[in-house]
Write a protein that binds this DNA or RNA. Structure first.
Lengths: 193, 193
DNA sequence: AAAAAGCGTTGATATTTATCAACGCTTTTT
DNA sequence: AAAAAGCGTTGATAAATATCAACGCTTTTT
């Protein structure tokens, strides 16, 4: 199970981990299984763990005053799930993260992660690269949300995230795009012509 | 002029820079002045520099097929301006960055910055912290854009970014929020009641 | 096997937001 | 000093999207 994580890390750094480093990493990350619908993080709690998804699918969302869920992130294999704001600032999270499918995670606390980064320089490099990618992805999504029509935005989503289309139902995708399921249904009908 | 940058860096790291490090930093960052309306980055160009704003105000925006500008970032003193996607991937930028006021910058190439980070560990720490803040801010903005009504979104913007309200005209704020200037005008009228 | 929950679609209607055009005022340019 | 450009506002109208309700189909739960 930890091998997925080691492979992932090795793919994102310039020179491979030593076997001592691999041992440290295996020791630091704790396996965790979640059944479908189980929470990884509940609104109001401080996000204690970062989870690397070995298998499964999860979603992160907020719930507004009317009880409507707004999906802010979707996660599948090889994604890191956490509410960074809560985790870094130690504030109660505004989000829920739960398992959409039965999911296997490797979890670590932020403190342990920082500790590990102190011992393994390559991890610092990896985190920086992850942060960069993350920043780029966020930038793109924000620009798309602000600039595009719902139709174009959906089109780009299909292009860029075909995996998500297969793993999550349409009303989840709609929410991720900031539109209702009915609107998405109509957009798709339009696009078929 | 470089002192603003040094002060900024010292504020964001745990132990202050040594004087040798300060010398290195001063040597690496090059001063640059931009007159109002001058480009720092034009669409289609690769973003070569990251700029630290010592004085002034800038904006980053894309231009859609209809010629409409969509503001993706606003920058004032102590902000870092760049298109990270272009800068990291070395791809032509989809954005323009220009000076909204006469602006003084300290600029550095990505290669030089990485070199500097190799020599000054504190900078790596700082960049990580900046990335974290950035990730948090992006998350908030995205969530607001997806979840809130235009009115609530504007309200939160005023709360969180009063500086921008003072420095940029309303049609720029509207574009930043993803709405038209007329809609913003009407929202404000509503809110006054 | 029956019941319940989840999902996607459609129709009718309401609400929100955009678009287009015009105006007064201020600031900048000539 | 005159002209032009920039800015915010308002009105009339159009377009996009949300809301509410209902339906058939599939999957999950009992």
């Amino acid at each position: 199970m930890h091998n997925n994580l080691l492979a992932y890390i090795n793919q994102h750094i310039s020179s491979p981990l030593t076997s001592e480093e691999e041992v440290l990493i295996k020791a630091a990350f704790q396996p965790k299984k979640l059944r479908k619908k189980q929470y990884f993080l509940q609104e109001g709690a401080v996000c204690k763990y970062v989870g690397f998804i070995v298998k499964g699918a999860m979603r992160q969302y907020s719930v507004d005053e009317k009880g409507v869920e707004h999906i802010v992130h979707l996660y599948i294999e090889n994604y890191w799930a956490a509410d960074r704001e809560s985790s870094i600032m130690l504030t109660p999270s505004k989000y829920n993260i739960d398992a959409w499918e039965d999911t296997e995670l490797l979890i670590i606390t932020r403190a342990e992660m920082l500790d590990l980064m102190g011992k393994i320089p390559a991890l610092v490099e990896m985190i920086r690269i992850m942060d960069e990618r993350n920043a780029i992805a966020n930038q793109r999504r924000l620009n798309a949300t602000i600039s595009n029509t719902a139709e174009k935005n959906y089109g780009e989503f299909v292009e860029n995230h075909p995996q998500f289309i297969q793993r999550f139902p349409q009303h989840i995708i709609a929410s991720y795009l900031g539109i209702t399921k009915e609107t998405l249904s109509r957009i798709k009908k339009q696009a078929m012509k």
